[in-house]
Design a protein around this nucleic acid. Sequence first.
DNA 1: CTGACCGTTCAAACTATTTGCATGATTGAC
DNA 2: GTCAATCATGCAAATAGTTTGAACGGTCAG
Lengths: 307, 307
Amino acid sequence: MIDSRLRILQMVAEHGTVTAAAQALHYTPSAVSYQLRQLAAEAGVELVAHQGRGIRLTNAAHILLRHAERVQEQWELTRAELAALGSEPTGQVTLCGFSTAASRLLPPAAAGLRDAHPHLTVRIIEAEPDRCFDLLLSEEADLALLVVTADSPPMTDRRFDQQPLLDDPLDLVVPQGHPLSWRRRVTLADAAGEPWIVGHPGTTYHQLVLAACMSAGFTPHIAHHADEWATGTALVAHGFGVILVPRLAQLGQESPVTRIPLRGEPAPARRIMSVTRLGAREIPTLTQAVDTITATAARLLPKPDGG
Amino acid sequence: MIDSRLRILQMVAEHGTVTAAAQALHYTPSAVSYQLRQLAAEAGVELVAHQGRGIRLTNAAHILLRHAERVQEQWELTRAELAALGSEPTGQVTLCGFSTAASRLLPPAAAGLRDAHPHLTVRIIEAEPDRCFDLLLSEEADLALLVVTADSPPMTDRRFDQQPLLDDPLDLVVPQGHPLSWRRRVTLADAAGEPWIVGHPGTTYHQLVLAACMSAGFTPHIAHHADEWATGTALVAHGFGVILVPRLAQLGQESPVTRIPLRGEPAPARRIMSVTRLGAREIPTLTQAVDTITATAARLLPKPDGG
DNA sequence: CTGACCGTTCAAACTATTTGCATGATTGAC
DNA sequence: GTCAATCATGCAAATAGTTTGAACGGTCAG
């Protein structure tokens, strides 16, 4: 509903370059360039200034960006009004989230929606947090579950409504028989000297582990890279190091490892957020989805006793 | 800039039928129908209900209409911001108005704008008041000069900013030597018994004359129809009746007629309004245009002495 | 029951957008 | 300095989206 040219401008502002914006939108740079030109003509102002081999957005562009935010918000309010108008929710709602969310939290919520509203089409997209924000902006998705990363927009970003959903505690996974597995109380710092297995640089998992270790006061010795839980677990089982897994993540039973809840103040955890476009949270369908997700999470993470 | 589908919905709301909306937009009914369907799908709601051989807009459609108004207003504010950003006004500005305005008020204003801002393209469209509102909505025009008619949107219509510009006094035109031409003081009621020459039914001029006569307390005897001043004047000169002409209208010198300023409380006049989309009046270019038009009007209608 | 209107549908004509490639400009590495 | 890499843009061709025109079914007034 929001003008596609404004969306493109938002992406350019977000990603800094025409090329990156094009990538996020599944467009080619030519298309983005062309549309920016159109928008500039329509508004009767210059939008971009060339700077080096890239571009810089002008003052006028920032005015248009503020406009886009307001229109976006207004549109979400209207959507909510329409949805509240009664009658069965119709059309399509799309939930997106990173791997663990997509596999454990979203399906129950999606199924609940589907069963409650026969005329509603429910879609799920598994995507990394960065991409989730793009999906929200482009209205390809309506609700996103994601872990905060260094690349996340700030909480104050007026395009999004970001609410903490739950704190997913982190467990340390060590080989069976590892000295730490006998300890009554293990903190992250206790594993500071271990060789670590983390995701590839740039992945959310990589950032997560590094951030957790950093806030525990040490920099991990990274011995191996593995992006999938199964791979990491297997490496641990064979004594290549230790990994950190969020409580929500399910590990296969194949590898003989010990999973140890970490203690600490605060206990190491990853914060999972539910994110909508600003104003969209009031849409009944989404409210219901968030409720279901909260309930699911409570079931999967029974009582966080002790801390 | 505003979504073309919302514009179409506005037109349908305004004109009541798909066909009429299509006409106003220079579209075919098919296109309007198709776009309404698209909009409904995008919003996930029903927009039209069939009623008899026409349609009726649903509740949801009215919510969307309110949305359209708000977005429209927001866009105009943004335009004003952009325009105020400094730098020379660029792009295009279009003024529209009914015949007299188009010939006597708009050209000086347009010329002023053109000379003041070399990079600005100025256009003029001559159009009946009804059409002027459509032109504003579709952003084909930015400022309209028009006479209030029975079909005008109410002053409270949140899509427009309607400001009184001037009152154009009405003159009675009678054949030379006509008894009324010797009177020191003539009111409209004095011509109640004359045969009248008016525009064709439905024209602004027709409405104007009837409204004036009605507020003077009589219904004119309509003897002839003529839409052009020259035709009407010629008919008057040949003794077929009398006509009413606004002071701004220039009559050719070919026909021997007498033009008598009408008295009364209030003096018969047509009220000329300057209309913009709501929020657009602050755009410097338009402000300047209105100023020039006011000045031109003051020059053309020197001092309304006496009443 | 007939003619006038109205809204919708469908394939075809038409527009506008998007792509793919070529180009010029800038940056950083060697 | 040279060279490869990165970036934005321009243009013709491909593609997707919109608009048209003609046909149809429903509704209303005479």
